[in-house]
Write a protein that binds this DNA or RNA. Structure first.
Lengths: 322, 322
DNA sequence: TGTTGAATTTGTCCTGGACAATTGCGGAGA
DNA sequence: TCTCCGCAATTGTCCAGGACAAATTCAACA
């Protein structure tokens, strides 16, 4: 297993231990204006200056800021967490997700995944996942295997124990397997017709793929729009493609208030007969919007689909298989 | 609530709409600092102010700024193009891409594609492409069918004749077909081993998929890193995955000087035995960097592969495990 | 117990200026 | 005539410090 070097995290090996504010911006997802404001208000982050007077930050502060961002996403307030040291942040972050994820049976598998990933053995990684898929079936595969693996890899990235490209490799392999499975189980005339996308700031589509798999497996027909579709475009697509349900995925990086704002906006523009289903880590602590169904867990998809079908079986001849 | 222009680009629904600078930023890809600087230096864009004194821009200026950005990407200078009116910008933009795309035999097919897309008939669209794929074969499919379709759809988007979600639909369908084909033709022990990705600002992966198809078809083994991999990470991945060739795709939105800078940076950090292949519209007018091979056309991939193989036929497929 | 209104927090936007890096250009030299 | 070099103009990024609306907290009150 790869370990961070004692001198520092392998975030910018070639650049050394200091990053300019532009890099901090892209590494943490925070605006430079927010970063500067925090400095003036809370005294953190604490940059040195280069010879031009520009701020340069030690890489350790990148890790802190990423943790802070996660905590904010979970509903904490900047005044309470910005400026805490790494240990305190990690302690808070640990409270965030109760350690229920590490089921004992999955422990061994996850370890194998991390091993293969750190050895960059792609063939092995691919085999591991495909074997698992056929062993436990698509639904369990998505709801447990993939979920837990993503959490582990995300955690490792946050702490700097795996590199960006390793996370990319992982994502590509798992995505590929999921897409493959989705194509296999998709039923072109299925119902409801579900439109899947992410809001404009969200670039990660793994959550969509997982939802897509679970939805298609239970008879829905999914239309993917990829990532980053503005609300107005979703509305237009719903109309054009005769959509029954809009499915959206919010990652944990998403600020809760943005989630709520987007959902309220979208929901108010859609016809009442069209449902909005929101899922992903970013949704857990978001304030509820009327007319939106929130999913805390992929398990709920099957139930929601059954409920939807029982609500809509009147006007149609239902070839339901129960 | 602040609802009128909160999210999305109301290009189609509301004609007299105004967007705040934050929306302009995400719509055009320009920094708000650049937008303000242009205003003070060239008198464009020309915002009104809302009741708080914040800038609000008419949607027409969004179109202008997108065109300007494209022109800058092609090497023009802000002082020459910022502030020109829409007609002048379109005229310059027209000069950019000579209308060679409309090959006569493909005309009929392209028309069918645009038809199906505007009717949102996804099943038909999917059928059209799959039929075409089996009729002409993967290589021709990628090099002609997909290339021309992308050009048509991109053009239609720029002129506002199709909506964003329609472009997303098109992209998803074509991507899916390509990925499907790639899996089928991939040879796990193929050579050279090619790492595919895009630079950090580039989010479009269609170019990568097309290259991947062509590469895999001719015996290479491709490892995809998805989009937006920093140079340092590519270097690490090359080492970790025993890569022979790094393939990069630059879209036309990419400023030429950034392309050159990225390639120079990357090339200087890689071992001399590792080749860098760069393709995509953004590469056409970029200044050449030593050690980088530029691809103007997907046809060249086959030739480049043959050349690479003839250069490396001595130590053929030696597995070097650590 | 629930609600309302004031106080505080916080992100976004503003102005106006400094400066390094890049680009373009004109002149000197081959 | 062509190439190279240095100077001047251009241009993106960064800074400081302030204003303010929206969101949130909290205390007082019904």
């Amino acid at each position: 297993m790869a370990d961070p070097v004692s001198s520092g995290l392998p975030l910018h090996p070639a650049q050394g231990a200091w990053v300019p504010i532009s890099a901090l911006e892209s590494e943490t997802g925070l605006t430079r204006e927010v970063i500067r404001k925090w400095e003036s208000r809370y005294g953190f982050p604490q940059p040195k200056r280069d010879k031009n007077g520009d701020r340069i930050y030690p890489v350790e502060q990148v890790v802190c800021l990423r943790l802070i961002r996660r905590l904010l996403g979970a509903g904490m307030r900047p005044g309470k967490v910005v400026g805490l040291d790494l240990a305190a942040l990690e302690q808070l972050s640990g409270q965030l997700l109760p350690p229920e994820a590490t089921a004992t049976s999955a422990e061994h598998f996850s370890q194998q995944v991390l091993d293969a990933l750190s050895r960059h053995d792609l063939i092995r990684l691919d085999c591991l996942f495909r074997q698992r898929l056929f062993r436990v079936g698509l639904s369990l595969f998505v709801r447990e295997t993939v979920s837990i693996s993503i959490a582990l890899v995300g955690e490792a990235w946050l702490r700097g124990t795996i590199r960006v490209f390793e996370e990319h490799l992982f994502t590509e392999i798992v995505s590929s397997i999921l897409r493959d499975a989705i194509r296999t189980v998709t039923e072109p005339s299925g119902s409801p017709r579900v439109l899947l996308s992410t809001p404009p700031e969200e670039i990660h589509t793994m959550g969509l793929l997982m939802a897509n798999a679970e939805l298609s497996l239970h008879g829905a027909y999914c239309i993917g729009l990829g990532a980053q579709t503005p609300a107005t475009e979703i509305v237009a697509a719903v109309d054009a493609c005769h959509i029954d349900v809009v499915g959206l995925s919010f990652s944990i990086a998403h600020p809760v208030r943005d989630v709520a704002r987007f959902l309220r906006d979208l929901s108010s523009r859609l016809a009442p007969s069209v449902e909005v289903w929101a899922g992903g880590q970013g949704v857990l602590r978001s304030p509820r919007i009327a007319g939106v169904r929130y999913f805390h867990d992929l398990d709920e998809i099957e139930l929601a689909l059954a409920a939807w079908k029982s609500r809509h079986d009147g006007p149609r001849s239902e070839p339901e298989l129960d």
